[in-house]
Design a protein around this nucleic acid. Structure first.
Lengths: 133, 133
DNA sequence: CTTGACCTTCCAGCGACTGGAATGCCCATC
DNA sequence: GATGGGCATTCCAGTCGCTGGAAGGTCAAG
């Protein structure tokens, strides 16, 4: 299997696969006679694993650890769980932040006429910059 | 006022001010005899404006537009409102995405023993990679 | 006159790719 | 055998919004 097919099958662009190889996230692929990278199902499986982890917001560093745990038959599930829980905590932090921003913006938008006149509480807030939020 | 004082007063690092000047977000500051950047209250005000806009998640490009609108006495508040609404839409998209990810992770965490044994539904999900979410 | 805090410029790096150029390989058709 | 198109290869540069650090200049205090 060439990189294009592996990429399609794993749901990542070919460039990303080369990048992952470059940074040592995945092992260097074997090569054909014409120097093309060659992939087996096993390697595509790993790529899918990474793709899925990334789509859940794990960093590439996290992926390294997750792959290591995945490959380690003597792993403790506690270690995986801890990683997921840390990730959830970060998500909660981010969600709180974005929610707060959203509230602030929504409040400002609500009070803005949104017509042809220049008076605008949104700009006023940005200019004042010591209100709440 | 030197850059350090301006920075403290606007709530941004000195490096960021130089960066903003570099990319043309704010006008080049005047210079002292010793080539130090010199800031007036007016310029600190602009910096605070940008800092506040950035803290609400507006991009630097957005800040350019917001500053332009702020400076334009003939602006229509509708334009500002539209920007804020677009931003809110983006936030909603992001919030939905993160919330969905959180749900998936929470579901996985819930089913993981988190003990010394290797069996782990989180890794199993990453490896399967065709479940929901 | 020295110390130390501030300032200057410039270059490099973060994370996680992504775009593009220049080149090479492979297969099919004429 | 030539040719064309679609793959592949490498390498460099850019994205976004800073941030760190090196090498040097300025300023006020002691």
């Amino acid at each position: 299997m060439n990189i294009g097919e592996a990429a399609a099958s794993a749901g990542v662009p070919p460039k990303t696969i080369r990048y992952y190889e470059d940074i040592g996230l995945i092992a260097p692929a074997g090569r054909s006679e014409g120097n093309y990278r060659v992939y087996s199902e096993r390697e595509v499986h790993m790529l899918r694993f990474v793709q899925r982890a990334r789509s859940l917001g794990f960093t590439v560093q996290d992926c390294r650890q997750l792959l290591a745990l995945y490959r380690d038959p003597g792993r403790a599930s506690a270690d995986v769980k801890a990683m997921a829980e840390r990730r959830i905590q970060e998500l909660d932090r981010k969600l709180a932040e974005l929610t707060s921003i959203r509230q602030t913006l929504a409040g400002l938008v609500e009070h803005c006429h949104g017509d042809q006149r220049p008076d605008c509480p949104i700009l006023a807030d940005l200019a004042a910059a010591d209100g709440p939020g």
